[in-house]
């Protein structure tokens, strides 16, 4: 019986080593929650800026008043600033909570695994970012929100090979949402808020209770 337990222990050690040496497992669920909250704040700012309420009408939200200047910004500048702020705050939150989790577990933050995760997530994200700038350049504002959802979903799926595999399901949900959104232009912001806001919060909480509690 001792021998049997020893073999079982050996097998589980092998498994854990393979897991730890090939995946970055310190990604914190709370960073997902933080990203979701910042995304909702960002979306709320757009509603305030345009002075519309969610699901108000099936109007193209960017076409409410193209010549508007509010808070010293025209709407294109406002969108870009708003999006950049949401991205920066979400990134900062992600780095903060993930660093904290790694420290607690005594794991390194910046090692070849993290590098691989960052590079592989960044590739679809940067491609998507440039693509959306192209859409703005061609005045196709309505396609931006669905496109960000789809590219972000692809980035999650690409990154899932190098971190907790659960993020793959988040990616699939974002892509589905993006595809639905592209056939429902005019509700882009609602879809965007749902995908980046609520889905992140739900995903983050599930991850938090699954791995960190």
């Amino acid at each position: 019986m001792d021998k049997r337990n020893e073999h079982l222990e050996t097998l589980s050690e092998i498994r854990s080593l393979m897991e730890r040496s090939s995946r970055f497992i310190s990604l914190s669920g709370l960073s997902g929650v933080a990203a979701g909250v910042f995304a909702l704040i960002g979306a709320a700012m757009v509603y305030f800026y345009l002075e519309i309420t969610p699901f108000e009408t099936k109007r193209l939200y960017y076409a409410v008043d193209p010549s508007r200047i509010k808070w010293g910004m025209d709407y294109l500048t406002f969108f870009l600033v708003d999006a950049a702020l949401v991205f920066l705050f979400a990134l900062a939150g992600g780095i903060f909570f993930t660093t904290r989790k790694a420290k607690k577990k005594g794991q390194k933050i910046w090692d070849p695994l993290t590098k691989r995760l960052v590079i592989n997530t960044a590739i679809p994200l940067i491609a998507g970012g440039l693509y959306c700038l192209g859409l703005l350049y061609h005045n196709m504002f309505g396609l931006v929100a669905p496109s960000t959802l789809i590219f972000y979903g692809l980035a999650c799926i690409n990154g899932s090979k190098y971190t907790l595999t659960d993020i793959r399901y988040l990616g699939i949900c974002e892509i589905i949402l993006g595809v639905i959104a592209i056939f429902n232009i005019g509700y882009g912001l609602e879809f965007w808020a749902f995908g980046f806001g609520f889905l992140h919060i739900i995903y983050g909480l599930v991850m938090y209770y699954k791995y960190e509690k």
């Binding site: 080593l17 393979m18 090939s22």
Partner: peptide
């Protein structure tokens, strides 16, 4: 030996692993 098993486990799932990483992980 557990150490040799450990080294092989890490090399099975990574293309190349450097000495320092092996040392720290094990």
């Amino acid at each position: 030996n557990k150490v040799r098993l450990g080294i092989m486990s890490m090399l099975m799932v990574n293309d190349w692993v450097d000495f320092k990483t092996l040392k720290e992980m094990l």
